[in-house]
């Protein structure tokens, strides 16, 4: 457990060393969570321990304004989050290349880092996520507007409590208070957006995991078409919360993927192996 200054922000992180192997020779995954009510707990309480037990080093951290990391009033552009990741890897002296595993907005941060420093990224596992393109930014503007409207209404929390219980409603209230106390809602989509040409030339292999009923359920193979080294696995019956609700399936995909890439298995074979394990 620790806190460290990265990119000017006091950042909470957790590490677990790979078990049963020499950690110095083992691959490292970096878990990057999503926006709002999310924190490193989504990964730490689901994937982190089994992944470490499988011989893979784990680093999970709280994004700025989330979990136990510092929550400045301003400084929440997408570019800030990308800068934070690069700075964290630098100050922790993790040379990599590392495997970035991002959930929702965390995946967008992973793509941002891979596009900026491709030599530092061995692979990306993108869970219900997408790269920082203009269409992504346009959707984020709409999503943030919608979220601001919803979180301004007391009825939203009452409905949430009725549907999902008091715990979820409490989390949402706290997240709303935090969001409204910062500029996150109004600036998160700002940053260096990526062109179609840049995406196509990204050398990083990508395993794209989606819920069948998730945000990209209408066109689940769009990212495969946009990237040169990407394959998608759709987990049926799951929505945008596939990481938490189907964490065992995500784990079964993730571990052979990271092992395969680390041992120089061609990325397309690593995908096939991962897919076969959950078939």
């Amino acid at each position: 457990m620790g806190k460290i200054l990265a990119n000017g922000n006091n950042t909470h992180y957790q590490r677990m060393d790979a078990k049963g192997v020499d950690p110095a020779a083992a691959p490292t995954v970096v878990f990057i969570h999503g926006l709002g009510t999310d924190s490193l707990a989504s990964f730490y309480l689901t994937l982190a321990a089994p992944v470490a037990a499988a011989g893979i080093n784990v680093l999970a951290y709280d994004l700025r304004g989330h979990g136990r990391s510092e929550c400045p009033d301003t400084g929440y552009t997408f570019q800030h989050f990308v800068g934070d990741l690069g700075a964290l890897l630098d100050v922790l002296e993790i040379e990599g290349p590392v495997h970035l595993v991002g959930n929702s907005f965390g995946g967008t941060v992973a793509f941002g880092h891979a596009l900026a420093r491709p030599e530092q990224v061995a692979s990306i596992v993108s869970i219900e996520s997408e790269p920082p393109t203009q269409p992504w930014a346009d959707r984020m503007v709409q999503a943030m507007d919608y979220m601001a409207e919803q979180l301004s209404s007391e009825q939203t929390f009452l409905d949430l409590e009725a549907q999902n219980g008091a715990h979820h409603a409490k989390l949402a209230r706290k997240a709303a208070a935090k969001l409204f106390a910062t500029t996150m809602i109004s600036e998160v989509w700002h940053g260096r957006l990526t062109s179609a040409e840049e995406l196509r030339s990204l050398p990083t292999p990508v395993l794209h995991i989606l819920g069948g009923e998730g945000l990209q359920g209408g066109d689940p193979h769009a990212l495969e078409r946009a990237l040169s080294h990407c394959r998608t696995v759709v987990i049926p019956g799951q929505d945008h919360s596939v990481l938490v609700d189907a964490h065992r399936k995500v784990r079964e995909l993730l571990i052979p993927w990271v092992r395969g890439i680390h041992t120089d298995v061609p990325w397309i074979d690593a995908v096939a192996e991962a897919r076969a394990l959950i078939a």
Binding site: A41, Y44, L45
Partner: peptide, 27 residues
């Protein structure tokens, strides 16, 4: 919240070490 459970897990790990892996139990 779940992030508080992460703190508790880390405290338990510090106290009892490797044999008591709460993160694995919760996973």
């Amino acid at each position: 919240e779940s992030i508080d459970l992460v703190t508790l897990t880390a405290l338990i790990s510090e106290r009892w070490g490797e044999p008591v892996n709460l993160a694995e139990f919760l996973a």
